[in-house]
Design a protein around this nucleic acid. Structure first.
Lengths: 205, 205
DNA sequence: CTTTGCATACAAACGAGTATGTATACTTGG
DNA sequence: CCAAGTATACATACTCGTTTGTATGCAAAG
């Protein structure tokens, strides 16, 4: 095949990424071969190796593509919101769930990240990155809960660190279960209800 | 090497299973080769193929080894407990967390099941089984929450199905996070605290 | 005219499955 | 109770398909 224009090349790159998501979802990351991805994208392995160093590089590109919007979301809410810290946290959670409902791509990539690959840093550099990002957001959240505590928004018995881990656990668990089987419960309605239980459990009064 | 007695053969089988856990944890299921497992167990692939059909068979044996104690635990508490359904559920959760703390094997196998393998039923028959078991325990739990509701133990706003999914999510999230990094929080102390938040959020009064 | 964006061809490694070898534990008939 | 005979519990050896990485070719874009 003849050489493509820059625009066409970029389109090829995107179609490879799209194909990768599809095959990763179906087969799991480890069992998908670059040949499968290329075929699905309508190209050959040559094109894949031209755009990406190897499968890990491709995987990392996918992961980053999904994480950026989530990070932006959290930042924007954090900035735009004033006053009640607990409400801010609550809003971020709601918006994360809504993102899963609204964006097919986000759903699919996070499904791959959480259910179609093995959490082994040795091989998967994206896992190391995820660890770091998770730790960062946990620390941020803990600070938020600490100020919430200072502002008297939390029950006396509630420990900020435990509240942090509990919320992260709940969000992760909810997301994983729903992404694996969207029929399990109606999102975001039930998701928000579950969040309410949590916040009812930690909020004062 | 010469033929072993039955007892020795059984010991070999166990050592292969133990070796499999180790290597699965380190490399992830898909990247571990039967050669690695055999070498770690001090035998050759011949022994592995003698005791197990293939890697999936080995994996399934491991999974079943871990699930049985958990199922027994839930059943025994369900039978021995009388009265308050919510307390019964709470107790099961506490005991599950405690099992992770107490049993290294349980910790390791569940880490493999949840973080070192890909959730793809096509390849991994153990995933299908897990789906079924999860669905069963979810249904059972929903029934329990329904009776709790009838007994007036839950807030009016709480839906039994949502309470079910929320608890499963919380438990799964807590377990995954802690198994991946036991330094993240102190188990079972913090784990029980997090459970308290949840039950405070759904319990009447 | 050079570089780009691929397709094609090639080599090498690896892992799975299986076939075969074999010493010994068990078993069974005498 | 003992001697064959048989099945067992592996180790070793071999084959085969798959996948990866790279090298090379080539037409059009820049």
């Amino acid at each position: 095949m003849a050489r493509r224009t820059k625009a066409e090349a970029e389109a090829t790159r995107e179609s490879i990424l799209d194909a990768a998501i599809e095959v990763f979802l179906e087969k799991g990351v480890s069992r998908t071969t670059l040949e499968m991805i290329a075929r699905r994208a309508g190209v050959t392995r040559g094109a894949v190796y031209w755009h990406f160093k190897d499968k890990n590089d491709l995987f990392t590109a996918l992961a980053e593509r999904a994480r950026a919007p989530m990070a932006e979301l959290a930042d924007s809410i954090r900035e735009s919101s004033e006053g009640n810290v607990l409400e801010m946290i609550h809003e971020v959670c709601r918006r994360v769930l809504k993102t899963f409902v609204d964006s097919k791509t986000q759903r699919e990539i996070y499904t791959v990240l959480w259910s179609r690959c093995e959490y082994v840093s040795e091989i998967n550099p994206s896992v190391e990155r995820q660890k770091v990002l998770d730790a960062e957001s946990m620390d941020q959240l803990t600070k938020d809960f600490e100020t919430a505590k200072e502002q008297g928004l939390l029950r006396d018995s509630v420990d900020p660190r435990a509240a942090t881990v509990a919320l992260m656990s709940l969000m992760k668990g909810m997301s994983i279960l729903w992404l694996r089987d969207p029929e399990l419960y109606e999102m975001p309605r039930y998701g928000e209800e579950m969040l309410d239980y949590y916040f009812t459990g930690i909020r004062r009064h």
